[in-house]
Structures are given as structure tokens and as C-alpha cells.
Simulated scan of single mutants.
Amino acid sequence: MLDYSHNYLFVLASLTIALIAGFSGLSLTQGASQMSPPVRKIVVSVASVILGSGIWSMHFVAMLGLELPVAYYFDPLVTLISALTAILFMGLALLIVHFGTRTRAKIMLAGVIMGSGIAAMHYIGMSGMELCVPSYTVPQVAMAFAASIALSMASFQVSYGRRSARNIVMGTFGFGIAVFAVHFIAMAGTGFSLAEEQTTFVPPMSRGVLAFGVTLSAFVLSGSFLLSGATFATRLGGQGGGAAKAPEDQAEAPSAAALNGRQSSEASAEQASSGVATPKPDAQAERRIPYESDARTHFISPDNVSAIRAEGHYTVLYSGNAKLFCPWSISEAEARTGADIFIRTHRSYLVNLDHVTSFERKKDNGVCYFDDTPALPKVPVSRSRLAEVRARLGM
């Protein structure tokens, strides 16, 4: 067996690449589940490429830092297959959590798929080495897969248990550490020996060519990181500082009040087919809330919305069995609907107290329950807003 070591500058660079890719992919998908299916597919596809490329780039940046006493090369076809493997596995994992109802079981399944993809990509990439043959035992491979799956499940649980800014950042570190740790756990159980003869008819890829490819990938990931970071900062600003109304929003408000009877009946029919509660006769048209469905903008009376939840820079409306995507931020929804209908119970929730059927006190916070809203049966009440909510409920 050959002695080997790692250049620690490349080790640090590989961790940085993993973190950059993790943040870019996870922040890009924030709010994707509320987008229209065609747009969601595009976002998930791009995020899959970013995360998968990040896994591949991290691995080969670390491999560039592998110092062996002999020269070694890589099979270009196997190297390409390893990259596609990482992208496909990440794509499947993201499809699971961004299409259909997101449950804990689906989040865990996505983590298992991601972990399997990371480990599979590592060993496929290692099998492409030429002139120098890696070797490992079945228990060593099993340990690497087990560590990869466990770390990936933890990362997905943090990232998708709740899609807040804090969880995105924590999930970024979880993703980066998972990819980084799996590589070096696997390498710790790997030995290297000289190959007796060339095993491929494909011209080998030198470390210089590999470095060129990895550098190009790292450049693209860095660009994605800058764009995602700018968008992420904008979302934080929109949620924290109150939403200023855009000119288009101001222009739409009067037109909403002037909708004719035919448009109102179409919106009512859409609500009925979606399981939305039937509008009340005294609903105020000028305060109707927009939501997107079937490539059209529809409107619903605030009286028929039980709660509004923040989802990135947008919101989700809960009415009966329906979950509706609203283009307003939580701050804009609070400003437009008025305090006489909704009350902020939590930084991420607005609640229509007319739909609250029961309230439960839990130490220093509380919970509001909705019997008429299966889509969202309960909403948390934070400690700072507990007194106001109890007063509005007449308690």
C-alpha cells in the first residue's frame, strides 16, 4: 500500500465549496413549494444541478489535494458519471420535498436519498482513478454510507422541518459538513496501490484538466452563491422591515374594487372547486386577498381566510381544506387586511380570530385551534403576543 497525505489548503477549499453550494441550492428553493408547478420544476432542477455539482466539486477539490508518491489520472467518462449521479440523486431528493404534501417521513426519505447519492458519487469517482488503484472493504463502505445517510437526514430535517432563514443557514452547514465528512470518512478507510497496467481505452484525464473543470464549476457555484445571497438578503429585509407597496400593487387595488359580477362569480367557482370556504355576503371587495392558481390571479375575502403563514417573501392562505399561494409578504398582508380582521400571533402567522374555535395556554405561549380549517388545524402564539391575543379573544 502507498502512503498518502492531504494538502490542507485543498481540504479547506473543499469545505468552502460544499458550503457555497449548500447555501445556493437551499436558499434558491425557499418558497418553491408555493410556486406554480412549471416554475417549481425549473427551480428544483437548477437547485439540483447546484447541489449535485457542489458535491462533485467538493470531492474533486479534495482529490486534487491528495498527495501520493506516484502519478495518477482519472477516467473522464467515469468522472462525468459521478457528477451526473450526484445531480440525479439531489434532484430526486428535492422532488420529494417540493411536490405533494411535505411530511416528516418524506423529509427523512429525501435525506436517505441525498446521503446515498453523496456516498455513491464518492465511490464512483474513486473508481475512475488510473495508474493508482483505491481499495476498501465492505464494512468500510457500509460505514461511509451509514454516516452519509445519517448526516444527510439531519441536514434535511433542519432545512425542511421549517423553511425559515435561520433553518436555511443551519441547513447549509449541515449540508456542507455532511458532504465534507463523508469524503474524509471514506478516505480514512481507503488504501492505494499501483495498477499493474492501464485499464481503460479512453485517454486519461490529467490532474491539470481536472483542476480546470473544478475551477470552472467553482466559479459557477460562486456566482450562484452571490445571486442567492442577494435574494436571501432581500427576503430578510422584506420580512423584517415591513413591506412597502410596489407601484403595481397600488395600481391593482382600485381595479380589484371595480371587478364586475362575472369575475366575482369565476373567483367563487374557483374557491368552491378548491375546497375554499364560501364567501360571506358582507365581504369588502376592496380588501380581497389575491392568490395564484392555474396561471391566473383569483381573489378571496379576508373573512374566509382562517390564517396567513409567511413562506419566504410570500405567504400561504388557509381556507377550509385549501392552501393558497399569495404574492404578498406577511407584512404586506398585515397592512392591507387591517387589524380589525387579523392579528399577528407569531412572526410567521396572521390569524382571523373569527375562525378560532379554541385556545390552549402552554406555559409562556399558546395555541389557537381551527375546527373549520383542516389544512391548518392549529397556529402557535408566541410569548410576546400572548396577552394581546387573549385580550382579543375576550379571555
Rank of each mutant, 00 (worst) to 15 (best):
G65L: 12
G65V: 12
G65C: 08
L66N: 03
L66C: 14
L66D: 06
L66W: 09
L66I: 12
E67Y: 02
E67H: 06
E67G: 04
L68Y: 02
L68W: 01
L68G: 03
P69G: 03
P69E: 00
P69V: 09
V70L: 09
V70D: 10
V70H: 07
V70G: 00
V70W: 03
V70A: 08
V70T: 04
V70N: 08
A71H: 09
A71G: 13
A71D: 15
A71W: 10
Y72C: 11
Y72L: 10
Y72R: 10
Y73V: 05
Y73T: 11
Y73C: 01
Y73I: 00
F74K: 06
D75T: 10
D75M: 04
D75W: 09
D75E: 15
D75F: 00
D75S: 14
D75I: 01
P76S: 05
P76D: 05
P76V: 07
L77Y: 04
L77S: 04
L77H: 03
L77T: 09
V78P: 00
V78C: 10
V78R: 01
T79R: 04
T79H: 05
T79N: 12
L80Q: 07
L80K: 04
I81T: 13
I81H: 07
I81D: 13
I81Y: 13
I81C: 14
I81S: 11
I81F: 15
S82K: 02
S82F: 03
S82D: 09
S82Y: 07
S82G: 14
S82C: 11
A83M: 14
A83H: 00
A83D: 01
A83Q: 07
A83P: 02
L84F: 15
L84W: 11
L84K: 05
L84C: 14
T85R: 01
T85K: 00
T85F: 11
T85V: 15
T85Y: 07
T85N: 08
A86S: 11
A86D: 03
A86I: 04
I87V: 15
I87L: 14
I87P: 12
I87Y: 11
I87G: 07
L88D: 00
L88T: 06
L88A: 12
L88F: 13
L88W: 10
L88E: 01
F89P: 00
F89N: 01
F89H: 03
F89I: 03
F89C: 13
F89K: 03
F89Q: 04
M90G: 02
M90P: 01
M90W: 03
M90T: 06
M90Q: 13
G91Q: 07
G91D: 12
G91R: 04
G91I: 13
G91T: 10
G91H: 12
G91M: 12
L92I: 09
L92Y: 05
L92C: 04
A93G: 12
A93F: 13
A93Y: 08
L94A: 05
L94C: 11
L94F: 15
L95D: 09
L95A: 11
L95N: 13
I96A: 09
I96R: 02
I96N: 02
V97R: 05
H98F: 14
H98L: 10
H98N: 15
H98R: 05
F99N: 08
F99A: 09
F99W: 10
F99H: 13
G100P: 06
G100N: 08
G100Q: 11
T101E: 15
T101R: 06
T101H: 08
T101M: 03
T101D: 14
T101W: 00
R102V: 11
R102D: 06
R102S: 09
